[in-house]
């Protein structure tokens, strides 16, 4: 009850804010030199560089509705190859919802409708004949709370390759497991206890196990939904370092609550506000020179 009330309060406040200060919000938009090309009037309210030069995924006018609630409005955004894209914004702004569109995880939520176009390597993944199974094999996901399966560490990582039939032999499977654990910087910590249950690891280790599990199926994109929010600072640092290493081979989309984390790990940052994508751009630029009033207010800590 309370949550819902405060959410709608926030919405009301924000729209009031927008209505009372039209000149203020527009005055702070600074369409200067480089922006002219990327500043796209067509896309509601979004400022900055929506498009990437080497896109892996390209979303155009994506809308999400839960029943009557319009959770995501006309979001257009690219995820580039070998880049880390951070999505930030106050809670309830729709960043997680948008993330879950990218591998159609919203299909599992009852009453959720997604419209618009999402291309992966130029192919629309929203088309009705697209099977979500191979799609999710290409767009992996790591969740907010570490959720290792109640199986051994080995079996956790082997799960994906097994169901997708990626390994021809047990030796090959072992190779995949070992290399995934190595890539996830977990190998040294667990190599002696691969048969132990994955749930027995510490929180940070569990999350790296989940990352290992995701990369064992060789995805092209990895989606991370606040992967460090349940972890201590040391584990967080390890995961952040890992994300930076993984960028060499994968495109990574990370939703985060922490602006510092976004600044540390990402190359590009998208700022969401109440279902609208407000501003996208190079991370360095967003945090130093935000173009939109709301972005500036958020990163300077006026709300959020």
């Amino acid at each position: 009850m309370n949550e819902r009330a405060s959410e709608s309060d926030m919405e009301a406040q924000a729209s009031q804010f927008m209505a009372e200060n039209p000149e203020r919000t527009s005055a702070r938009r600074r369409p200067t030199e480089a922006d002219a090309a990327t500043y796209d009037r067509e896309h509601r309210g979004t400022v900055g560089e929506l498009r990437s030069e080497v896109p892996r995924m390209r979303c155009t006018r994506v809308n999400v509705r839960y029943g009557d609630k319009h959770a995501i409005r006309d979001v257009s955004l690219d995820v580039g190859k070998n880049e880390v894209l951070a999505m930030i914004g106050p809670s309830g702004c729709g960043k997680s919802t948008f993330l879950r569109c990218l591998n159609r995880m919203n299909d599992t939520v009852a009453g959720c409708r997604v419209t618009g176009e999402i291309l992966l390597d130029g192919k629309d993944i929203m088309a009705p004949d697209v099977d979500v199974v191979p799609l999710r094999a290409r767009v992996g996901m790591v969740f907010q709370k570490p959720n290792p399966f109640p199986k051994s560490i080995f079996e956790n990582v082997a799960f994906g390759p097994r169901i997708h039939g990626l390994a021809q032999s047990h030796a090959e499977l072992e190779e995949i497991v070992v290399s995934s654990l190595q890539k996830a910087n977990l190998w040294d910590e667990v190599k002696d206890r691969l048969a132990h249950p994955g749930t027995g690891l510490s929180g940070g280790q569990q999350q790296r196990l989940c990352i290992a599990r995701a990369i064992a199926i060789q995805p092209e994109v990895i989606l991370m939904d606040e992967p460090c929010s349940a972890l201590d600072p040391i584990s967080t640092a390890k995961i952040e370092q890992l994300i930076d290493e993984l960028r060499r081979n994968y495109s990574i989309c990370i939703v985060t609550h922490s602006m510092q984390q976004a600044a540390r790990v990402s190359q590009r940052t998208a700022y969401f506000h109440l279902g609208d994508l407000i501003e996208v751009g190079d991370t360095d630029r967003i945090f130093v020179k935000p173009q939109h009033q709301l972005t500036e207010d958020y990163i300077t800590g006026r709300f959020g």
Binding site: V133, P134, A137, H164, L166, I217, Q218
Partner: peptide, 22 residues
């Protein structure tokens, strides 16, 4: 090298889909 395995694994996933749907 990773691009190679990527495409490789994707082909394997596609190959198994018929059996898995059944």
């Amino acid at each position: 090298e990773p691009a190679q395995t990527e495409r490789d694994s994707f082909a394997r996933v596609e190959a198994g889909m018929k059996r898995r749907r059944a």
